[in-house]
Write a protein that binds this DNA or RNA. Structure first.
Length: 937
RNA sequence: GCCUUGGUGGCGGAAUUGGUAGACGCGUUGGAUUCAAAAUCCAAUUCUUUCGGGAGUGUGGGUUCGAUUCCCACCCAAGGUACCA
């Protein structure tokens, strides 16, 4: 009677599915607890061993909470729109929906094998019309809202219109495009329909605007920074340039302050909150306007150091700055245009990371200092980014290192305005450390006073004002892709008009080609008729566009983060046809109590979803404005890629430690052909790809050693490890416990199966505890004091560890416990029954089996978690007449006459040895010389 | 570059508030059992040593009676860096 994990696991997986054991109810007397995983993108490579890490952790906690008497919601679904399915469709012509469906089915099988306690009746898929209907619905709400700074919330656009009708845009405290010009109520009434719509677009939370994208004309498409390598496209190696395009954007900037504030109340990792804070990047400073010599325009700059205004010796514009073309002098024209063109080819990331090479060019124009009226040369430099602030900076080389380097490099004047500061080799950047000099009315002032005074003067003279600036940019919401949610907008004479909500979903059309159209329009342009008939209120096949009733639909689709920005609310009420989530359901579940997912989403999904939540909260559609109370980042499980070395120009491969004698290139090979000692299975390699079938190998001691490198798991890197094999070989319970035993969940670690046998033999030992040579055997007698002590120590440790998500140390405690009970020959129900419940969140199938063997006919998941009995841990001792349980602290006053060495000698000889006799863990002795001795156990 | 995280035996990792560094597991070595193997059980296992000791938590400094833990500088690795999800 061995531990037959295959049979046990299958049995209980079927049992749970049949009995719907983990189906959550929206009505319950019990307190609610919502445990959420970040839903996976169903990739073609299948689920790999990295995915379950977070799911196992959340599953343990969800199961634990059920034992603790909570009504637990633990759902799962698929983020099923995405680029890989589309790429595959482009290559093969297969509809992404087919690929996606196949991948989802595979994922589901794999997930089921691991015994997760998901409530599958609430599954969502972002690419399904009954889900994205509501994504489109939320988009329309955003389109139909603006941000009112007085109420500090989103408001319906109707309110804005009525404000315009009575006041124009005077006294309006709303977030808008910067270029808005003021108008009166009469102006508004006189505006044409088109003009009115254009004005409203400047306020809408979902709006159209010109934004800059990476355009690849060869591919006829827009590329992500990710798809650009060394300035050319990853696919094909074509040239990529910056191009302005009309794009949908989300005015997330309106929520910058609330997104920042909201972080304080969240139980999220401090590091992740810090990342979001930095991403939002609030900085307080001033906008300063400089007139331009012999030209009537102004340059507006944002600076966090207006106190250094008298240290300005030049200005720098981003190469994309709109004024560049108009202000350049004729002599400089050729040079400047060449520079602008060159920097258009560099990605923003390149420009930011390359700080060592300083580049720039003088425009030939001069700005005028607002106070001294001195001329200031205007330069262009690509260290200034168009997307941040105003795209222009006032350069103060004495107080900013980048300005300093730029000035030194181009031999521009540096003026020192800091008392006693040495600026011969570097800028003096510490604010508030000294006083300001040579600065007219700011002389002798420190940083703070100078800031206040200069901003006041700027405002008086109309050449600037105090400003708060956020680094957070509005999020571009258009994608030139096929496989995403269609944007429910049509264009009437070039003006975007929203579909009516009752006409949703706007279903993704069939196309023959998933590539952009030959004219460079997004793939939806390939649809036979992607047009909206306003009379029948339908997409009408073969209808012709006309001026009166049939209008072109938006060709862009929504980005990947659209569906994931609200899916967690859908789980609460996944079948609701009338609303994105029912009032009753959302009032019961409120929000997510525990969210587990990777930190790679810190400034993407985790920020956008907070934004949507706050928006929906503003419209009174949700009861809370933060959706995830507690968040834990599971570290990524990294793949360990393998490389072999080929002698250049030959079919001869050289083992890792012998390459120094040859000129070699490295080639990736599949990780499944390499064992734990980095030895390559040559036979497998020969069969793997035809190019290796005739290869020869230079071996060391008869084996070929590969080079290893740790990186993200991905199909293209041949380093994906499939959990199915491990489930077959060791069982899901072993896999679950092993992944948790690998280390702290927050920590990233490379996958390695080296230690899995230890966890597996633990489960075998556990099985043996409940069996004797005849078969299952649990005694009804009373357990020994020793066994009860082991049990209660374990209950205490396990409970604490689960609450702290310290699952690796928790499993260590289980191992110690089982070893102790085995040594004690414990077989009493009084110990073995609680032990099975303790293990139920971890070894989910095995504990159900043992529970049944012990004569229970319901699932172990409904049983209360054991509570430890402190009295079993109390121990009396001859040496120490003191009992201890858990943390213990003695403070013993010693004679002050002894010197530290003498004290130490006494302690080392006596107390320490005595204390070491007690308990399982050695005790620590602390000696504080001359004063107190603490003995901490 | 910038933001975030991490660096401890042959390996994954533990160490509560600054107090015996290396829990637990893998691996290795030795032993028991076996005709043998698998499985199982027991013991040892940071390195070094002239067996007295000595060194040791990425590197170099600092604070402290005492530092894996706190501070400063640096090196290395991973994640993010706005159209990968």
């Amino acid at each position: 009677m061995g531990y037959n994990f295959l049979e046990i696991e299958k049995k209980w997986q079927n049992y749970w599915a049949k009995n719907q054991t983990f189906k959550a109810s929206n009505k319950s007397e019990l307190p609610k607890y919502y445990v959420l995983d970040m839903f996976p993108y169903p990739s073609g490579a299948g689920l790999h061993v990295g995915h379950p890490l977070g799911y196992i952790a959340s599953d343990i906690y969800a199961r634990y909470k059920r034992h603790k008497g909570f009504n637990v919601l633990h759902p799962q679904g698929y983020d099923s729109f995405g680029l890989p399915a589309e790429q595959y469709a482009i290559q093969t012509g297969q509809h992404p929906n087919l690929t996606t469906e196949a991948n989802i089915n595979r994922y589901r099988k794999q997930l089921d094998k691991m015994g997760f306690s998901f409530d599958w009746s609430r599954e969502v898929r972002t690419s399904q019309a009954d889900f994205y209907k509501w994504t489109q619905w939320i988009f329309l709400l955003l389109f139909d809202s603006y941000y009112c700074k007085t109420t500090n919330s989103a408001q319906p656009i109707k309110k804005l219109v009525s404000h315009f009708e009575t006041n124009g845009n005077a006294n309006l405290n709303a977030v808008s495009d910067e270029k808005i010009i003021s108008f009166t109520p009469d102006d508004w009434t006189a505006f044409s329909y088109k003009e009115k719509q254009e004005v409203l677009l400047m306020y809408r939370l979902a709006y159209l605007s010109e934004s800059e994208v990476n355009w690849c004309s060869e591919l006829g498409t827009v590329l992500a920074n990710d798809e650009i390598v060394n300035g050319v496209s990853e696919r094909g190696g074509y040239m990529v340039t910056k191009k302005k395009m009309k794009q949908w954007s989300m005015r997330i900037g309106a929520y910058a302050e609330r997104l920042l504030e909201g972080l304080n109340q969240l139980d999220w990792p401090e590091s992740l909150k810090e990342m979001q804070r930095n991403w939002i990047g609030k900085s307080i400073g001033a906008n300063v306007r400089f007139n331009i010599q012999d030209y009537k325009g102004v340059i507006e700059v944002f600076t966090t150091r207006p106190d250094t205004l008298f240290g300005v010796t030049f200005m720098t514009l981003a190469p994309e700055h709109p004024l560049v073309n108009t202000i350049i002098s004729d002599q400089q024209k050729v040079e400047v245009l060449a520079y602008v063109e060159a920097s258009a080819k560099r990605s923003e990331r390149d420009r930011m990371s390359d700080v060592k090479s300083i580049s720039g060019v003088f425009t030939g124009a001069y700005a005028i200092h607002p106070f001294t009226k001195e001329p200031i040369p205007i330069w262009i430099g690509d260290y200034v980014l168009a997307g941040y602030g105003t795209g222009a900076v006032m350069a103060v080389p004495c107080g900013d290192q980048r300005d300093f380097n730029f000035a030194k490099h181009f031999n521009i004047q540096i003026r020192n305005i800091f008392e006693g500061a040495d600026i011969t080799t570097e800028a003096f950047v510490e604010k508030g450390k000294t006083k300001i000099k040579d600065s007219d009315f700011l002389n002798g002032l420190a940083y703070k006073e100078a800031m206040i005074k200069v901003i006041k003067r700027l405002e008086q003279e109309g050449s600037g004002e105090g400003t708060i600036n956020y680094r957070l940019r509005d999020a571009i919401f258009s994608r030139q892709r096929y496989w995403g949610e269609p944007i429910p907008i049509y264009y009437k004479n070039g003006i975007p008009v929203a579909l009516k909500t009752e006409n949703l979903p706007l279903v993704l059309p069939e196309v023959e080609q998933y590539l952009p159209t030959p004219e460079g329009a997004p793939p939806l342009g390939n649809a036979p008729t992607w047009a909206w008939d306003t009379i029948s209120e339908k997409v009408v096949p073969n209808a012709r566009l006309n001026e009166t009733s049939v209008f072109p639909l938006e060709l862009n689709t929504m980005p990947g983060w659209a569906g994931s920005s609200w899916y967690f609310n859908r789980y609460m009420d996944a079948d609701n046809q009338e609303a994105f989530v029912g009032k009753e359901a959302v009032n019961y579940w409120q929000n997510v109590d525990l969210y587990i997912g990777g930190s790679e989403h810190a400034t993407g999904h985790l920020l956008y979803s907070r934004f949507w939540q706050k928006f929906l909260f503003d419209l009174n559609l949700l009861p809370v404005d933060e959706y995830a109370k507690k968040l834990i980042n599971q570290g990524m499980i990294l793949g360990s890629s393998a490389f072999i070395y080929r002698k250049k120009g030959t079919q001869e491969y050289v083992s890792k430690n012998l390459i120094k004698d040859f000129e070699v290139e490295s080639i990736r090979v599949d990780i499944s052909m390499v064992n734990n000692s980095d030895e390559l299975d040559l036979e497998a390699l020969r069969k793997w790809q035809p190019q290796f079938s005739t290869a020869s190998f230079v071996l060391e001691n008869g084996v070929y050693h590969v080079e290893r490198e740790v990186e993200k798991m991905s199909k293209s890197k041949y380093n994906v490890v499939n959990p199915d094999l491990i489930c077959e070989q060791y069982g899901a319970d072993t896999l679950r416990m092993y992944e948790m035993f690998l280390g702290p969940i927050e920590q990233a670690k490379p996958w390695n199966t080296a230690g899995i046998s230890g966890v597996h033999s633990f489960l075998k030992k556990l099985w043996k505890l409940y069996h004797n040579s005849e078969g299952f055997y649990v005694s009804e007698g009373s357990a020994s004091k020793e066994s009860l002590k082991s049990l209660n120590q374990t209950i205490k440790k396990v409970t604490e560890d689960i609450e702290n998500f310290s699952f690796n140390t928790c499993i260590s405690s289980f191992m110690i416990c089982v070893n102790e009970l085995t040594a004690q020959k414990c077989n009493e129900r009084g110990v073995l029954e609680p032990l099975a419940i303790l293990l139920a969140p971890f070894a989910v199938h095995l504990s159900e089996e043992l529970w049944q063997l012990m004569g229970h006919d319901t699932s172990i998941s409904t049983v209360s978690f054991p509570i430890y009995e402190p009295s079993y841990l109390v121990e009396s001792s001859k040496n120490y007449p003191v009992s201890f349980n858990g943390k213990m602290r003695f403070t013993i006053e010693l004679s002050l006459k002894l010197n530290p060495q003498e004290i130490e000698e006494i302690i080392m000889k006596d107390e320490r040895t005595q204390l070491q006799l007690q308990g399982r863990n050695p005790k620590k002795v602390i000696v504080v010389p001359g004063k107190i001795i603490n003995i901490v156990g």
